[in-house]
Design a protein around this nucleic acid. Sequence first.
RNA 1: GCUGGGAUGGCGGAAUUGGCAGACGCAAUGGCCUUAGGAGCCAUUAAGCAUAGCUUGUGGGAGUUCGAAUCUCCCUCCCAGCACCA
Length: 911
Amino acid sequence: MKSYDPGNIELKWQKLWEKERIFEAKDNSEKPKLYILDMFPYPSGAGLHVGHPRGYIGTDVIAHYMRMRGYNVLHPMGWDAFGLPAENYAIKTGIHPEITTKQNIKRFKEQMKRIGLSYDWSREISTADPEYYKWTQWIFLKLFERGLAYRANLPINWCPSCKTGLANEEVIDGKCERCQAAVVKKKIEQWVLRITDYAEKLLQGLDKLDWPEQIKEMQRNWIGRSEGAIIKFQIINSKAKINYKSQIENSKEFIKSFTTRPETIFGATFLVLAPEHEFVASLFKNPKSKIQNIEEVKEYLKKAKKKTERKRIAGIKDKTGVEIEGIKAINPANQKKIPIYIADYVLLSYGYGAIMGVPAHDKRDYEFAKKYNIEIIEVIRPSKFQIQNSKKNNGAYEGEGILMKSGNFDGIKSEKAKKEITRWLAEKNLAKEAVNYKLRDWIFSRQRYWGEPIPLVFCGNCEKTVKNYKLQITNPKQIQNSKFKIQNLEFHLGELLNPGWVALPEKELPLELPRVEKYQPTGTGESPLSAVKDWKETKCPKCNGKAIRETNTMPQWAGSCWYFIAYCVSSNPKSKIQNHSPSTDELGPVLLKKGGGSKLLKYWLPVDFYVGGAEHAVLHLLYARFWIKALYDSKIINFKEPFSKLKTIGLILAPDGQKMSKSRGNVINPDEIIEKYGADTFRIYEMFMGPFDQPIAWDSQGILGAQRFLQKIWRLFEKSAILNLKFQTNQKSKIQNQKIKKLIHKTIKKVTQDIEAQKFNTAIAAIMELVNEMEKEKELSVVDCELLVRLLAPFAPHISEELHQLLGKSQIINSKFQTNPKSQIPNPKQIKSIFKESWPEYDQELIEDEKVVLVAQVNGRVRDQIETSAGISENEAQKIVLKSPKIQKWLNKKEIKKTIFVKDKVINFVV
RNA sequence: GCUGGGAUGGCGGAAUUGGCAGACGCAAUGGCCUUAGGAGCCAUUAAGCAUAGCUUGUGGGAGUUCGAAUCUCCCUCCCAGCACCA
């Protein structure tokens, strides 16, 4: 037997696995299925660093383990290939992103293969492949068709460095998620997806998911559901000569505001509007404006507009505003006239962009009222029980309590008053119970080149047709769920809601990205595609008139919203996703069949276990859930949640404790590590270094421990007497190794449980303990050795297969294993457990010890440890333990007041 | 400010229906082997002391219990996310 040479061994097995296509999932199988998935990477130019594979190795361990348990495992990999770095590189060098992306993919794939990851490469996909993105486009059209995509001219988050609009989810701390440039507001025509329609479903669905609480909570916060009421405030001209009672009767101007605390309405002493509020704009349109301080107001609006989002946030401590003099609002509860302010601490994007100011019970309103000398009326006082814990938040009491100065509602508890006051105002049609969400619709257009083209055209003719027709619609329900014939042309809901925008027919998909000369974004809000005249100018597929293509592209998140579905399409090259066309029959033959998905989708989906970084909590993970829910409602698929179980991976930091990055120069390259130590050592170290979901720094010494461990196992086989006997088992060694046998079975139990709980670090620690014990033995049986390599196989598959072969056995993955040689003849019980093929099962009898160490305590302190037979009674234990001189010494002839006995564990005398 | 998660030797970490704190690994120290060691082997390795033993010890303080890293209350600090969301 040669010394351990990981390089050769690993390449040998990797070649064999590839040749035998041993890790490919079977589409037609009687076995139970397991779909275990990694978040697919963006193939960057830098290649993988040692942090990336941590998750991949984790899922690989589970994939191996579950295959050994007899599951039909789907474990695929692909590429999230659209994205800015490739495009920016193209701007610099002129090399088409497609070329660099392909090179990067090749590199990534080689690196992954060298780690020995057991992916089913027959199902590999890339989101930038036209044969893939035709389906992304197709799904977009399904959303468009159902009215879930709409055109809007919105002030959006604009990254001046990337020169593109961003979704709210992509703005972190007022900065661009990708390049950290400060985001500004810019008004652009956008495609927006109505994710808010799914706010409630996205929230509700979380409860049933086996996801980390942290991620679920982040999504809950992001969705931001709050219950309250819409309250209407009437607006009157405060300088009008008519008395205001009759004004109240006559004025029809109202401003709506959302509040979570309608019970404080009697304390509402002012109204605040966001600077962008439409009422403010309407004041200027009206030539007979009632505003007396119009110049002052204009000045404030000008200033507010100039402020960036960040400055507005920075102004939290110092709120600014201006009163609109000349008009007043009426508090609907007590008909008091209250002033109206414009202030930028109120956000247009939430609720109605208007709030009622209750300074006594809201910190922010309090600060504002103090600054502008507005009346503060306390209407809730803490009850006797609450008074001790009641804290004023910067002057405002924000807790629950008893109502006062609230008309008929005095003395009522605030929780109860919430509903009653809303109801009372509702009777007068001045309020309504309401639910509000923080979640905003998803801005879906990107003014960049390297993304999926949006498969829509704009047609002037059709715009007229639709606009004329829309005028005839009286009942909005009329336009739901169906197609309409207008002048012999068919339009669907999306086209009616966005006049002039026409969907490409399915047979024209994919709409491929045209070649361009310049990738440079224009910066004007137009994509580089708008410069490609003969691509942009086209014919309307509906009326055959002149039409212009949408030149924006989709955001990077689009392709990742459904990629896990694409993997499920057969691995048979003839039926690969690339070979399916939406046009060949109604909805595409295999991928997406009418009525809830094809057989394959039903078999594989949803994903059973998903592993990736927590940074996608409110991005990819939310978007994908949204698309799946929309596709479910379109009856294209039959599951409501894409990922049943989710586990996040902790980042691997550089040895200096910093994040690994090229610019810091602290990146550790897995290629070098594998070159030096081998893939198995790398895998063992990454799994052993700490808990899977916690961040941890790379330790270049630590990996030596993993290497020593594998070398120790190798030497164990080398020196083992059995090897010299050509792996012949003999009776004698069987008897001698009873101790080891027991330990092995305990280890089987521990490793099995730990893998199931993804506690890979302790699973490996248990195997290490076993190896340390086995090392002490002079002789080991073949069975002992075989069990050891089987436990090791999911973590270090190459060395395990090699050693298994040295034992004279066939491949682990293909060979059944029986721990009990007596049960060679199949019995009914065995047939039942036919799926438990090559993972060893432990024998409970062997795990139970005959001898245990009983801990003897006096007054709860350990004074002695005594070996006894297992299962002895309290009386027996007492007799034995009392003989101990150490215990006698501590008892010191005192009277035993009480004895506590825990079977096989502890006996405690209280004196 | 809000939400979620944490704090255990020199380091990463282990231990949960409350029952031997520090498994496993790294580093360190001493020894063996060696021309050599960034290889291997053996031993030691929480701290303190009056060292065959005893005492203290899981961020700090209180409590429940025969017994607390683990349960309860209060506090401090760290990490992550959100943040004028009415």
